[in-house]
């Protein structure tokens, strides 16, 4: 192992030490309840999307984020307005966490005029200039080069914004990821590479696809430090995100965060997920679920009551029901939309 790789490993160890050594992260009731609300919104939204898919109202590919909610909710809390976000095709949770309208997201899933892309993008392709969300990309790994370009523009303009670039353990084996790592470190770009390791690239487990299964080490050849993070603990995610963002804002260059997480559903709606056991899924769900974990933390610390959670649940169910109603009632795009937005 060369010096740089060792450096990256040491940085990772430091990250772990900081996380474990600092013991209980700060407990801010409002912040944690905010996390709870956002995670629950994503969970309930995705469940409803799955339901609408089953009813034939959503078609094509539909990749649900259920189980991974703590990743995007924790990391987005480390950003400030004007920072950029980009991800792949499992993107509904990221859009909601970026503050994009659940109605617009759901109506895009149903392919209606009220969708964020006017019904022309679909599940994998939504964007928001206002929230600096740059997609929503269907080609595995493409968002990593594109996101590096978002970070490049920040450096070019000499502002202090950062780009948060999400991709999965599957995308982490694409060549352009390493082309991007190289340029990002060479030019000290404010890029945070978030590898959401949910342990399966579609149906292929990490062990069957990756010679180096510790993804936080994947920047070693470029001298990019990495950190492994418990992606089911929203507080740990927030803390790791805050450290990486501070480093990028300070002009110290990119960082890799490997978020250990898990998706409960199949890769897409048409995947029965027979490559893993029901016991494995149940065990994750029962012992590691990010929402239940946070609920227990808040309860045992006396920061919230069952009534608080019931109130939040009612509020979220109403938002999701409203988005589903909107998505069904919104008309199909006008036929004239077929030939618009091809050139600007």
């Amino acid at each position: 192992m060369n010096d740089k790789a060792q450096g990256a490993d040491r940085a990772s160890e430091r990250g772990k030490a900081k996380r474990n050594g600092a013991a209980v992260p700060a407990m801010d009731r409002e912040e944690l309840l905010g996390f709870y609300r956002q995670m629950l919104l994503i969970r309930r939204f995705e469940e409803r999307a799955g339901q609408l898919y089953g009813m034939g109202l959503i078609a094509g590919f539909c990749h649900l984020y259920i189980g991974q909610e703590a990743v995007v909710v924790g990391l987005q809390s480390a950003l400030k307005p004007g920072d950029q976000v980009i991800t792949g095709y499992r993107d509904h949770g990221h859009m909601l966490a970026c503050g994009m309208d659940p109605r617009g997201v759901m109506a895009e899933l149903t392919g209606r005029a009220g969708g964020l892309s006017k019904g022309k993008g679909g599940s994998m392709h939504m964007f928001s200039r206002e929230q600096n969300f740059f997609g929503g990309h269907g080609i595995v790994g493409a968002q990593v080069s594109l996101g590096t370009g978002l970070a490049f523009a920040n450096r070019y303009r000499k502002n202090d914004h950062v780009a948060m670039i999400y991709f999965g353990d599957g995308a982490a084996n694409q060549g352009q990821v390493y082309e991007s790592f190289n340029m990002a470190m060479l030019w000290k770009l404010p890029a945070i590479y978030v590898i959401e390791n949910n342990q399966y690239a579609m149906g292929t487990s990490v062990e069957r696809s990756s010679s180096e299964t510790h993804f936080y080490r994947r920047g070693s050849s470029f001298g990019i430090p990495g950190e492994e993070v418990d992606g089911m603990d929203v507080r740990a995610v927030r803390d790791a995100g805050t450290r990486a963002v501070a480093r990028a804002r300070a002009g110290e260059g990119p960082m890799i965060l490997e978020l250990k997480t898990y998706r409960y559903r199949g890769h897409s709606m048409s995947d029965p997920a027979k490559y893993r056991s029901r016991e494995e899924v149940d065990q994750m769900r029962e012992t590691r679920d990010p929402i239940t974990q946070l609920e227990n933390i808040l309860l045992s610390a006396g920061l919230a009551t069952e009534d608080d959670f019931k109130g939040i649940d009612r509020e979220i169910r109403a938002i999701v029901a409203d988005s589903a109603d909107f998505a069904r009632e919104s008309p199909e795009p006008d036929p004239s939309e077929l030939m618009t937005d091809i050139y600007s």
Binding site: S117, K120, G121, H125, S128, G135, G136, I342
Partner: peptide, 10 residues
Amino acid sequence: TLYMSGGAIT
């Protein structure tokens, strides 16, 4: 991307 974003991203 312009098309997929409904005109949002040039």
